[in-house]
């Protein structure tokens, strides 16, 4: 792709975003919608920048990030381990596969009240919800990726003296890395979304809580700020993850 083509595509891509903001501005300025319903974009972005320097806002963002990463990390460990184990052992596969079949289509958010009952209203229940939501795509991607690994890779390792169990983690998992990382990226974005929702449903802190609190006080401007923050957070995490993925997969053939 040539540079000019790329540049023009970026310009075309910015167009609708600019249009949305312009339309938003026009509606707000025209007075059709009162500012309590739709604050002008200028006010929202000014507030966003102001909040980005505020201690209280950053503390809440930190709480959200902590829950997100705690849940995501647990989901990665559990999902990858179970996925690899299901590939490595018929017995584990026989248990994990039907369980996943039953639990994967269940909207995990429905479990949230049960998690609250068992783990309380604090961090634990939110982290548990993140784990429940993020673990399935990671597990499935790992399982599918590892079970598709060419036997000959394992055989090459086994002939060199590698034990079957060691081969499972040093060869099969490594060879399935592209698929595993795809699952992890989906899991990461899901974590980002779920932690926010959990905080909206019941919480006393975090970005989701800020949105709900602002809504309760009819501070519309402050409702937009957490939403935009979570979008930026998601995009940043996605970009960071992609960079990591590219580095980790530098030896693997290109795939989209």
């Amino acid at each position: 792709m040539t540079f000019t083509r790329r540049a023009s595509e970026i310009a075309i891509g910015i167009l609708p975003i600019a249009l949305v903001i312009a339309l938003w501005h026009a509606i707000a300025a025209s007075g059709i919608a009162p500012a309590v319903l739709l604050p002008p974009p200028g006010a929202v972005f000014a507030r966003l920048i102001e909040q980005a320097g505020s201690r209280q806002f950053l503390d809440n963002a930190a709480v959200t990030l902590y829950r997100l990463f705690a849940g995501f990390s647990i989901a990665v460990v559990v999902g990858v381990t179970l996925g690899v184990a299901a590939t490595g052992s018929k017995a584990v596969e026989g248990i994990v596969k039907p369980l996943v079949r039953v639990l994967a289509p269940l909207p995990k958010v429905a479990l949230y009240p049960a998690m609250i009952l068992m783990l309380g209203f604090d961090d634990a229940s939110k982290i548990a919800l993140v784990v429940a939501d993020a673990v399935f795509p990671i597990l499935l991607a790992t399982y599918q990726g590892t079970s598709a690994v060419d036997n000959k890779l394992v055989w090459s390792a086994r002939a060199a003296g590698c034990t079957p169990r060691r081969a499972l983690f040093t060869v099969v998992l490594m060879a399935a890395l592209p698929s595993v990382l795809t699952g992890c990226r989906i899991g990461l974005i899901i974590s980002c979304i779920v932690v926010f929702l959990a905080e909206m449903i019941t919480s006393t802190d975090g970005l989701g809580y800020l949105l709900v609190r602002a809504g309760r006080n009819f501070e519309t401007v402050d409702m937009f700020v957490p939403l935009i923050s979570i979008s930026i957070l998601g995009l940043t995490l996605n970009a960071a993850f992609n960079a990591l993925r590219k580095w980790l997969l530098r030896g693997f053939a290109e795939e989209s």
């Binding site: 595509e9 891509g13 167009l15 609708p16 909206m200 809504g215």
Partner: peptide
């Protein structure tokens, strides 16, 4: 090229979180 960036921005926003607004 027109829609992609817009969708990319919307993607990580939890849709249910738009409820209050």
């Amino acid at each position: 090229a027109f829609f992609n960036p817009l969708l990319m921005i919307i993607y990580p926003v939890p849709k249910a979180a738009l409820m209050p607004i």
